[in-house]
Design a binder for these strands. Structure first.
Lengths: 225, 225
DNA sequence: AGCCATTATTTTGTCGACAATTTTAATATT
DNA sequence: AATATTAAAATTGTCGACAAAATAATGGCT
């Protein structure tokens, strides 16, 4: 993607990964002197990286207090699903108009790979999750809408991955998801943007409801404990 | 909104306004030494502000080269309309479920003020434009979805305002827009999220088509010149 | 003259230090 | 013992300076 050149760049990438993967837990207050010492860079360089992490929504900043890793509640996870439903629905509609035959071809291949992979390594829910995001990623790119692409791939998807890593919501809907993906591709290939959007919105809404249910169950069992 | 405290904060706010209003033209390369001297701050403070401006999408940065004001083409303006259609459509749907009676009341008052204002100062297209954005702004807040609110009010709306200032696309649809706004409020008040979303999407799509047409006309007249 | 290589100059990236603010600790008071 | 006040420590905000990189200028060559 973007070539890493400066110290701040690689720091940005490294911290981003550590935050997404939860090695730096949510809501952690970041100490600039401590982090700078750990990475053996000056505070200027560190702060450059930190402000960029704030820009993509992974950090919050309070004047005269400092940076803190965001802390996502389950309520906010559901909010993210609603945003995704809107944005990816539109992306799908646009993809039906704008994807090249070549892009559609590659999308089909991607789905086949995921399918065969999931048959082999059943239970590897993690792989399925990343694959799922790949699929969505390709459609978003296929929208050819730079604003849309930026919002999703450079901001929202980091939050999504952060959730998946830290809450480990492995979907039990894998099989159904594949079938839904298939139908979405077909609609895109037909150039039927309206249908493609509807199918994508349903697909994401179904995931949201699934998570919603799981949260409700969790809350219940925790009450009993 | 957020209280200004640090030098970098006020710099951020001032530069943001100057960029949005076009006092610093699109695509301008920013010289850090020059800007720092002009504002009488150190480069550290300036860079803090600049990186935040990058975060909200008003500046672009290239490693070892520096910051540059973004440059929006008319094609990208249309892209923004598509994103708004998706996001504000969803915001409207959510607003129908989540707005309090108080918020709906204030929204109605807002529309009345705009209507009487526009009757008095006809031709003041600029006022209408800002009023229009206010209306949309209130609905977005009414969604009570923090992610959605952030994306629109802290990022996309700056681009929208930047366009309006610099391209001065005064809408000739003012009268129709008022009527559309009225219907949207009614749907929200009825708690009919599905209808509210459809109406908002049509409303924004109509604006987009309007701009699209104008661009086509402009292109034609320029060919003739 | 036009183009390429080399040198100067400017600009960005990075560093360490001090000032202003916040947070923590200690002390006094009820 | 708990709270309020004050003092100490640590943290963030800001500054100026140097190093590395990119841009501009100079000079040599065909």
């Amino acid at each position: 993607m973007e070539l890493v050149t400066t110290r701040a760049d690689s720091l940005f990438n490294d911290l981003r990964q550590r935050i997404v993967e939860g090695q730096i837990p949510m809501a952690t207050k970041l100490s600039e002197p401590e982090l700078a010492a750990h990475y053996e860079v000056s505070r200027s360089t560190l702060r450059d990286a930190l402000s960029r992490l704030e820009g993509i929504g992974l950090l919050e900043r309070k004047a005269n207090v400092g940076y803190r890793v965001i802390s996502l509640s389950t309520a906010q996870l559901l909010e993210i699903f609603q945003v995704r439903e809107a944005l990816e629905g539109m992306a799908c509609r646009l993809a039906a108009s704008n994807m090249t035959p070549d892009e559609i071809q590659r999308l089909r291949q991607l789905l086949q790979i995921h399918q065969s992979n999931s048959l082999l390594q059943q239970g590897e829910a993690y792989m399925q999750q990343e694959g799922d995001l790949d699929f969505h990623y390709q459609i978003v790119l296929g929208s050819h809408n730079q604003q849309l692409i930026r919002m999703l791939t450079e901001e929202l998807y980091y939050l999504v991955r952060m959730y998946r890593y830290q809450f480990g919501m492995a979907s039990p809907r894998a099989k159904r998801a594949f079938s839904e993906h298939q139908h979405i591709i077909d609609a895109i290939a037909d150039g039927d943007g309206e249908l493609a959007e509807i199918l994508m919105r349903r697909h994401i809404a179904a995931s949201r409801k699934n998570v919603e249910q799981r949260i409700a169950v969790n809350a219940t069992t925790q009450e009993q404990a």
